[in-house]
């Protein structure tokens, strides 16, 4: 109990204080307000001042970061919107907070359901940002957004997101999650390729069959 322990502890804080000056001096202007500076302050080597000057510089969010969900639409050649959502309802079934509502569109003539959502709501006052909807969506239609600056003055007006507010273009999705987007597009391309190949093969088989089997009609009857 002679106070050396406290002094040693104070030496640690003193060294950390010195570190801030040394580090500022060493890195100079690059330390703040540059991408490199922010990256350094996120890395395991960081020393000295750790603060991110929020509104001026933002901490970059990683690709997997998730906040509230949004819906992706593809842009057609003439700029028309093509919803990816088919109103299959899987997101409503996995949602732990049950904050998603989908009204499936129906064909006005027949009254049969069509694979399109008429209305789509997400109550972000219930959403727990868990990302299960995005994970299990088979059409890559619902995704988790990166935009966290959503504070409002009136939740009753602003916080039940309707389709208008949820829909965002695929290009936006490609921008916030480039790796995921590339992977999904690649998978889609491959699936299409496989489909095309299968179709081609089938066509070839049919053609071959046409050649070998003399009366094709009869064959059909047999089978």
């Amino acid at each position: 109990m002679d106070g050396t322990g406290i002094l040693k502890g104070l030496a640690v804080t003193f060294k950390r204080m010195l570190d801030t000056y040394i580090d500022d001096f060493k890195r100079g202007k690059k330390r703040y307000y540059t991408e490199e500076g922010i990256r350094y302050r996120q890395s395991a080597e960081v020393k000295g001042i750790f603060t991110v000057q929020y509104p001026e510089e933002k901490l970059p969010v990683p690709e997997e970061f998730r906040f509230v969900p949004f819906l992706v639409y593809d842009e057609g050649p003439n700029g028309e919107r093509k919803d990816r959502c088919t109103a299959c309802g899987i997101c409503t079934k996995v949602c732990p907070a049950q904050c998603i509502w989908i009204k499936r569109a129906t064909n006005p003539k027949t009254g049969r359901p069509v694979p399109r959502s008429e209305e789509f709501y997400i109550d972000i006052d219930m959403c727990m940002n868990c990302g299960l909807c995005a994970e299990y969506c088979p059409f890559d239609s619902i995704k988790m957004d990166h935009d966290y600056e959503l504070a409002t003055y009136d939740r009753h007006k602003d916080n039940i997101l309707n389709k208008e507010r949820l829909l965002k273009p695929a290009s936006y999705y490609a921008q916030i999650r480039p790796l995921n987007y590339a992977r999904e597009e690649e998978a889609k391309r491959q699936a299409e390729e496989a489909k095309r190949k299968a179709a081609e093969a089938r066509a070839k088989r049919m053609a071959a069959r046409k050649k070998t089997a003399t009366p094709p009609k009869k064959k059909d009857n047999e089978s």
């Binding site: 109103a87 309802g89 409503t92 079934k93 509502w101 499936r104 709501y121 109550d123 309707n162």
Partner: peptide, 9 residues
Amino acid sequence: RWPEGKAFR
């Protein structure tokens, strides 16, 4: 919630 979902609180 589906297929006749109409958001309510």
